[in-house]
């Protein structure tokens, strides 16, 4: 897959286009910085916001360090529990990214597999898969995710909720985003399967599954990469929204959405920083991913060039 990707990059002069687009480079730098700092959170952050012993309720609701009521120990202030907000944001971004990447991987695997199968075999399999996709596409992703989240809450015992929430979120978000992948993979497969190299593989007696994954898949990676990037932003947004609504990750492991949710409770009494900084982080992250997605889409669509 890596070699296929490399070939794709060279073929389409993606690198050339990338180096000539200032916006894309800036977005890539910002994305690398945010993602990098989030991944390195355990080493950069001054405290561990998941460790109850590392923060003190007496330190709660400090304003950012540069204001009059600030404390120099806490650059961006503290939240209602006395957590250092900067550390909480770094760990929160890590969690948001983790859920985003996991769920988009899940959605991609499910969608591409079903799309390949539907496009290659056609017939009743195609009809069934695409009918399910149609039904689901008529419901917006957030609704599907909320619904699966709610079902999981009903099935799972209450005690294990908090531990399993990340898995539940991944499945909920993944299941609400697979349709895009399936439809794209199917459409491209329909075109590719009539090409000569596929016919050659069939004549050689290659197993259909092997044809799909080793022959067709590398040739339809372009459009799938675009959806992967664009929908990563959607996945991060969904996680933040679910957590903000109070049905996402548990409060003792705050993600960006959870931090913003806590922050709104203090907004009216003037503690603006708990809302502001996590929101900014979230927005920067999503804009960076969106810009990269837009760039990929434009670069891979020859009609717009």
């Amino acid at each position: 897959m890596v070699t296929a990707l490399k070939r794709y990059v060279l073929e389409r002069e993606l690198l050339y286009l990338f180096l000539n687009s200032k916006v894309a480079i800036i977005a890539a730098i910002i994305a690398t910085l945010t993602i990098g700092s989030a991944l390195l959170a355990p080493w950069i952050a001054s405290t561990d916001p998941y460790d109850l012993k590392s923060f003190d309720l007496l330190d709660s609701l400090y304003a950012p360090a540069w204001t009059d009521e600030g404390d120099e120990r806490f650059l961006l202030g503290t939240d209602d529990q006395g957590r250092d907000l900067l550390s909480a944001i770094l760990y929160g971004t890590r969690l948001s990214l983790l859920v985003g990447v996991l769920s988009i991987t899940f959605a991609g695997l499910l969608g591409v597999t079903t799309g390949l199968l539907a496009g290659y075999y056609g017939g009743w399999l195609d009809t069934i898969i695409m009918r399910i996709a149609d039904v689901q596409l008529s419901l917006p992703a957030i609704l599907t995710a909320l619904l699966i989240d709610g079902i999981a809450r009903g099935i799972l015992p209450r005690e294990s909720h908090d531990n399993l929430m990340i898995v539940v979120l991944t499945v909920a978000i993944g299941l609400s985003l697979w349709v895009n992948f399936a439809r794209t993979a199917r459409a491209s497969t329909l075109v590719e399967r009539n090409r000569e190299y596929v016919q050659a593989a069939v004549i050689m007696g290659m197993h259909p599954i092997r044809i799909m994954f080793t022959q067709i898949l590398p040739n339809i990676m372009g459009p799938i990469m675009v959806i992967l990037t664009v929908d990563l932003a959607v996945a991060i947004l969904l996680e933040a929204t679910l957590s903000f609504l109070g049905v996402g990750v548990p409060p003792n492991q705050p993600s960006l959405g959870t931090l913003i949710r806590t922050g709104t409770e203090y907004l009216f009494s003037g503690e603006w920083w708990i809302v502001l900084f996590p929101s900014l982080m979230l927005i920067i992250l999503i804009i960076a991913v969106n810009v990269l997605g837009d760039f990929l889409r434009d670069a891979l669509n020859p009609r717009l060039r």
Binding site: A233, L237, A240, T241, F244, I260, L267, L282, I283
Partner: peptide, 9 residues
């Protein structure tokens, strides 16, 4: 890019 709830807040 800005989530609905952030716009609302």
């Amino acid at each position: 890019s800005v989530p609905t709830f952030v716009i609302g807040i």
